[in-house]
Design a protein around this nucleic acid. Structure first.
Lengths: 191, 191
DNA sequence: GTCTATAGCCCGATAGAC
DNA sequence: GTCTATCGGGCTATAGAC
């Protein structure tokens, strides 16, 4: 009874790796087939068409990312530490597994994506903006963060800087580039 | 004698629009053929293979962007105005022509790009980082910008934030989103 | 320089046996 | 659930006439 669930889950995880590396348009059912013991046609049993698979992969990624945020919230209540943990979490994954934020990468090719995939990406952006807005507001209240203007707009610019740093790290093929920029952004909001 | 040059140039400009919309992997010779009066095979006369075309398009974009920077440098010497002009230039193009920074978008799919295209993209990142570093250092010297740390690192984080804002605007399909975030970044460095 | 025609490949997706 | 076989179509690229 869990055979199907495990296979579907394994397909999603392989596809996630491929999408992070190549984006949505440049990975194929054949690529998945090569990386696990399954034929192309069998993948269609679990995900009838590519947009189903794409949506499932992004939804899975969103859930994982949400768990990452929850984990940070449980580890510490210090806004500065939370900010640093967010950065270090990405940095570690980039070094260890050439991991990048899937939704940042997919947003770049958004006009070519099926609508159901686009919706998942927008959801990710909203969730992470909201998390940073809460983080920044609480840091401001505690007096450890200083910044002008609305915390929500500031949250958008912080998220943008982090995601832009990830793009730059990909351009230079150097995770250190991400870490340097992101930590600069983190120190910029501190008193 | 200028027939070939004009055709090649026209192909580059059509391809630029397509690459901004869809990225490198999701546009084709057939797409170009549909948008101008030329057959697929004839495009190969001007650009023997797709990586030649891709490299030429990004090189053309780099030149255009460099001219944009020169133009800003001629209009004003006030660092704050320069920063604002940089943002407004992108914003206007995004509104009028659904324009995005080609190199930001292509950096996201970098691992799938031919090496000659990658090199052009890295060149763009270096040029714009250098321009911002000069801008920030001069603003700091004039006392109109305040920020901690090295101007080059700060330049990287500013560029990252602007590029990240562009990605977010694409995710939300809303140019205003870009403008709001980018102007926040601009005001953050001011005294 | 541009064309028609086509080679050769990969893609997503389906049919039907097991 | 997984397989083999295959369809129909899009892709980059080439050959060769004009």
């Amino acid at each position: 009874m869990n055979t199907q669930a495990n296979t579907a889950q394994q397909i999603i995880e392989i596809a996630l790796g491929l999408m992070i590396e190549r984006g949505y348009n440049a990975f194929s059912y054949a690529d998945i087939s090569e990386r696990m013991e399954i034929r192309k046609a069998s993948i269609h049993y679990h995900f009838p068409n590519k947009s189903d698979l794409g949506r499932s992969v992004v939804a899975h990624y969103r859930t994982m990312a949400q768990q990452g945020l929850n984990q940070i919230d449980q580890i510490t209540s210090d806004p500065r530490e939370k900010f640093t943990l967010y950065i270090e979490q990405f940095y570690r994954q980039m070094r260890e597994a050439k991991f990048f934020c899937l939704c940042t990468l997919l947003a770049a090719e958004l006009p070519t994506l099926p609508e159901c995939v686009r919706d998942e990406i927008q959801g990710y952006f909203r969730e992470h903006t909201a998390w940073f807005a809460t983080l920044l507001a609480s840091g401001q209240a505690q007096g450890v963060f200083t910044f002008g203007g609305d915390p929500t707009i500031k949250a958008q610019s912080v998220l943008a800087a982090i995601q832009g740093a990830m793009i730059a790290a990909r351009a230079y093929q150097d995770p250190e580039h991400f870490r340097t920029i992101a930590l600069q952004v983190c120190s910029d909001v501190q008193t």
